[in-house]
Simulated scan of single mutants.
Amino acid sequence: MWVTSSLTNALTPTAIALGNFDGIHLGHQEVIRPILHRSKNQEEVRSFLSYPLSVPADTQTPISSADRPEHIYSTVVTFNPHPQEFFTGKKRSLLTPLDEKVQQLQALGVDQLIRIPFTWNLASLSPQDFVEKILIQQLCCQQISVGENFCFGKQRTGTAKDLKAIAASFDIPVTIVPIYARGGDRISSSAIRQALENGDLQRAQELLGRPYTLTGTVVKGQQLGRTIGFPTANVAVPAEKFLPANGVYAVRVFVQGVDNHLGVMNIGVRPTVSGTHPSVEVYLFDWSGDLYGETLTVQLEKFLRPEKKFASLDELKAQIQLDCTAAKEELQGNTK
């Protein structure tokens, strides 16, 4: 898939899904579906769990137009930074950092991701100018798909219906997609974040359409786990990755995208050993080798308990044993 932050480097003409798409949840997938130029069988869709790609902008191999004459490129257009981050100056944690977003868009069959730099000039464009100058003149847009709550243009004055009316004057069709879960609740990235903060992994998975995952490289920690018989892998996830509630989880772990292992994970500051910084530590039930430097993808299956400070390492050790038993019962009862 071609990834670029430059409008001049974009592959054109385009069929565009427009939005921020943090999470690539089920609602986002419905917005993207109308622009895909080919259907995919379930067997063809790559697992969302394989380890992430390294995707510096403009370095992936573009699709050859010679191989696809008159091809319209299915394109997801998003903004960097997120407009809310731009206006507030506050960093946003992400459900899907860039590597994960690219991986999941590829699995859906998207040809191109364009991350438009969000600047004051862009923020000052009227809805009419945004459509004309960005979507039509620079991206040669042939088709557009957005969620029904999409807003754009100066001070977010343009709505999805406005977009449809403006695009119609250029004979460009716009699909407006309602984004609701089966129960009738609206699917949103904020609802997924709330579910994860509450330890409600089932709800998060219902909205995402897949389990929530954390991917990172194993780095050296304090190595205290091995002193009590539970050596853990300290996983360094991207700084911008959204972390769910502190506590202990039953997890499935993929090493370099393969080898499904069962385990427990702790997210938190480790108060029993006077920790001060949040960490992600994973204990694998069936692993005895060296994991340093390996890339792990941790799939969260069940929230077992909140983080707690214990009176001694012996109490902590006893609780970890109980956590392992609970995790095994949960995971082995839900084998995939």
Rank of each mutant, 00 (worst) to 15 (best):
H277P: 04
V76L: 10
G109H: 12
K309F: 12
L262C: 00
Q194F: 15
A204Y: 07
K220S: 01
V102S: 04
P62V: 12
G183N: 15
S50Y: 06
A191C: 13
P117L: 14
E43D: 14
N198C: 14
F118G: 04
R270A: 02
Q223S: 08
Q138S: 06
R270C: 02
W287K: 06
V253A: 02
H82Q: 15
T227S: 03
F86Q: 07
A236P: 01
S126N: 13
G147V: 10
Q222L: 03
P231G: 07
A327V: 00
R193E: 08
L291D: 02
D99P: 14
T325Q: 02
I134L: 07
I114L: 05
L113H: 03
I176H: 05
I172M: 13
G293M: 02
L163A: 06
F150T: 10
G229M: 02
Q84W: 13
K241A: 09
W2R: 03
I192F: 12
P13L: 14
I144V: 13
V269W: 01
G221Q: 00
T215W: 04
L53E: 05
L284S: 00
T8K: 05
N41P: 04
S39A: 14
L105K: 07
G247W: 03
N266G: 06
A168P: 05
P244C: 14
L139K: 04
V110C: 11
L108I: 12
D185Q: 15
V248D: 00
S274P: 12
F242E: 02
I134Q: 00
T88D: 11
E43Y: 13
N41T: 07
F170K: 11
A236L: 12
T61I: 08
P244K: 08
S6Q: 13
A17L: 13
I35R: 02
R46N: 08
L296A: 08
G221T: 00
D111Q: 05
R182L: 15
T157Y: 14
T159N: 14
Y73H: 10
Q29S: 07
C151I: 12
E240I: 15
H261I: 03
L284G: 00
V255M: 08
A191G: 13
L207M: 14
A66P: 06
V280R: 00
R226N: 01
P52E: 09
L296V: 06
Q332R: 01
H82W: 13
